[in-house]
């Protein structure tokens, strides 16, 4: 097992009080595996990633749980050890490629800098490796692009550069937070193909954080469905998408216009996400759930096997 998150809970301190952003989040990843963490805004998918990386803001506090990476609890590591983990062991790609790149530094120099940090090479070798890493993310004329600044590149090209940066160590785990959301659909397609290819070629595990079930279907072996800071359902992607066990997963799939009959209204999810300052005692989805029982509002369901399938787990009383 490469990564194991156990009962992770995170709180944010704000003027309005304590906001519980994550509650008892547990899941694991194997080496080389591509998993999708899917959810809407406020579901806690990005907070999960930032917790693993030790990049939470100062007002955030991990109140409970542990994150084991290769058997070591990364939450108990010192600042220096965490820094070594980031970049070298765990790479990151975020949504907006422009903010991830240094605006006044040439692409080649940025890459060479990262390569020198992680490997024992001379500046000259690093520059050559930088060009090679650009070629690996399928950038045409890598020597030329190495001499350019980020603003001279298109959004898709920039995201390729960011992926090249993240992969340069190369890491064992890549955490990608909505890396294709800001890109056009056809470019998105190319980036997804590239990430899959790199994962297969180098055995890099990818945690793909997204709001897009289509992306999950295309890329991920397994999926974690999150809602309001909790895991609602996990399983092999095709199991979860074909036989969604949680009413929230079903509602999310049903709300997509992809298959809807244009003459019928879309099945929207009524109500709003719960107040995370004051979490309900029972299931977080109960207030919006069409199948909720009285029990659902009293007791929080645990994540348990669905129809005896140990891989497919769901946190729901109405199974």
């Amino acid at each position: 097992m490469l990564l194991e998150i156990k009962e992770l809970s995170v709180e944010f301190q704000s003027i309005q009080g304590k906001l519980q952003a994550l509650k008892n989040v547990s899941f694991s990843m194997d080496e080389g595996e591509i998993i999708g963490v899917v959810g809407e805004s406020g579901s806690g998918k990005s907070v999960t990633a930032l917790s693993i990386l030790g990049l939470l803001e100062k007002n955030a506090k991990i109140t409970q749980g542990s994150v084991f990476y290769k058997g070591k609890d990364v939450l108990r590591l010192g600042r220096k050890e965490q820094q070594q983990l980031r970049g070298k062991e765990i790479g990151m790609v975020f949504q907006e490629p422009m903010t991830a790149l240094h605006p006044t530094m040439r692409i080649g120099d940025q890459l060479a800098g990262v390569i020198k940090r992680h490997r024992q090479v001379s500046s000259k070798e690093a520059a050559q490796l930088a060009i090679r890493s650009l070629a690996e993310v399928h950038i045409d004329h890598p020597e030329l692009v190495a001499g350019k600044y980020p603003f001279e590149l298109s959004g898709g090209m920039r995201q390729r550069v960011v992926i090249a940066l993240a992969m340069s160590a190369p890491p064992t785990l890549l955490i990608a937070d909505e890396p294709t959301t800001a890109l056009d659909v056809t470019i998105q397609d190319e980036i997804l193909k590239l990430m899959k290819e790199l994962s297969v070629k180098r055995g890099t595990a990818i945690m793909f954080i997204t709001h897009d079930l289509g992306v999950v279907a295309r890329l991920c072996n397994r999926v974690i469905v999150m809602y309001a800071g909790e895991v609602m359902e996990t399983g092999i992607t095709s199991d979860v998408l074909h036989r969604p066990a949680h009413p929230y997963t079903r509602a999310l799939i049903g709300a997509l216009p992809d298959w809807a009959d244009p003459n019928e209204p879309l099945s929207a999810i009524p109500g709003e996400t719960p107040n995370l300052f004051n979490r309900p005692a029972g299931c977080v989805f109960a207030d919006r759930c069409p199948q909720a029982l009285p029990l659902c509002r009293e007791d929080r369901p645990a994540l348990e096997a669905y129809q005896d399938n140990q891989e497919h787990r769901v946190a729901c009383w109405v199974r």
Partner: peptide, 27 residues
């Protein structure tokens, strides 16, 4: 065609609403 091919990942995965018992969701 390129645009359309980037549209249907869920259909390609064989997911459709009927299978998801979406009727159960209607109030």
């Amino acid at each position: 065609k390129t645009l359309l091919s980037s549209l249907h990942p869920l259909q390609a995965a064989g997911v459709n609403q009927a299978e998801n018992h979406s009727n159960e969701l209607s109030p």
